[in-house]
Design a binder for these strands. Structure first.
Lengths: 229, 229
DNA sequence: GGGAGTACATACCGTTGGTACGTACTCACA
DNA sequence: TGTGAGTACGTACCAACGGTATGTACTCCC
């Protein structure tokens, strides 16, 4: 079985950035990256189920041997794509988070960034739509917990800590879950809205009202009965 | 191609309840029902992707010919299961909703029922985990909109109408989306909690606090600027 | 410079969703 | 009462896809 020649120039060109690697490893990481790139494109475009490995390896100009050398299977490849998409989302939110001083204002900024991320078609398809089904609940939760959800938890913790509420970690997590779910659902609805800008404005009003309510209660010195074991 | 005899007693026994049908139709609906029953069991137990049509038809003691006579394919069968699960969930929530008088109290009751439903493993797997990926976003949203989400919208509308807020339909929908997402996420987190009862209690405290905040703002006569076109 | 391990390519397999086609049965209508 | 049309399946088969087994060229280190 003779081996077919492959085009090398482009691969090398891409690979030559990370300098301290042998040519071998440079090629390797280049093909791996190409696979993830093409996979992300296909997974985001047509979804996980409708994407065949054949189309991916064809797009990356490699064979299934290469794919299965780098990944355990289709799911592992998806997971790599998933992680990258999540990571980029985290980066965007984190960036938008470093401006305001007042925690409640910063929270609103973070929420806005979160809303923007959730509207990204790739994020929607890969993370929200296919993520839970493909990774399974456990892995999905785990991935979520150490990326965007972690950010949400930071935001919530910062705002709640500035209030008079005396909430333990579990309650912070509960509040984070609630806001995380709320903004995910709200953000997704923006995509199918007739006027996305208006939809975002409405969401900001609603969330702002909720936050204001919590702040007023805090100013009144209200302290919820936190259940414990 | 001779035809293998099939057991008839059980089918007839099941089918004989809806009286005004020919024997033919009784058998037909019985097999269809059997298919959906077995499909629900498998889809809920192992998920959509891991369930083969062969295992379903074997469980229902029919063949693929029968399946494809009643459904267009695997997805259509899943949709039938999905609808049934959603419908039962709606029934449960609706039932729990007819007790209190004060809209804010009724909301908390509906919330509790919603939390219970979302914890049901079948509901989780079929509706939340596999639903979006299998049906696709459009169909999923459509199904959602006329079932559990519709209920949520009723609850939200009832409570907001009793407040001083002057919110149009779009804002009601926005609030509904927010609470729907919040409770979905919160409810799902209950399942993986160490102490589910405690987790539910925490969620009720958190949501209660949010609702209280909104009520206090309403009592203060606060009216949000509702964006319009 | 040669042996070991890497980074793939090629060929093949089992399963699965879906289809084509055949047949037994029922029921309206003559 | 029988007969033709339509229903409700059963059987056999196919194409596509995920995954595997195996072979080979290339690199790198001793």
């Amino acid at each position: 079985m003779p081996r077919a020649p492959r085009p090398t120039e482009k691969l090398l060109e891409v690979a030559r950035s990370g300098s301290k690697m042998g040519r071998r490893q440079q090629f390797s990481t280049a093909t791996k990256r190409a696979l993830v790139d093409v996979a992300e494109e296909h997974f985001a475009g047509q979804g996980y189920a409708a994407t065949s490995l054949d189309s991916i390896v064809a797009g990356a100009q490699v064979t299934k041997g290469a794919l299965y050398h780098h990944f355990h299977g289709k799911q592992a490849l998806f997971e790599a794509v998933f992680e990258r998409v999540e990571q980029e989302a985290c980066g965007r939110i984190t960036e938008a988070l470093r401006t305001r001083e007042d925690p409640w204002d910063a929270a609103m900024d973070g929420l806005r960034a979160f809303l923007t991320v959730v509207q990204d078609p790739t994020y929607q398809r890969v993370v929200i739509q296919d993520g839970p089904a493909v990774l399974g609940y456990e892995r999905f939760r785990e991935q979520e917990r150490r990326s965007t959800f972690a950010l949400m938890q930071d935001i919530v913790r910062a705002t709640l800590d500035s209030s008079t509420y005396d909430l333990d970690g579990a309650m912070v997590e509960t509040f984070s879950r609630i806001f995380y779910g709320a903004l995910s659902a709200a953000g997704e609805s923006v995509t199918s809205a007739d006027d996305p800008v208006l939809a975002v404005a409405r969401i900001e009003v609603a969330v702002g009202l909720i936050l204001d309510g919590l702040r007023v209660l805090s100013d009144q010195g209200v302290t919820p009965r936190v259940p414990s074991t």
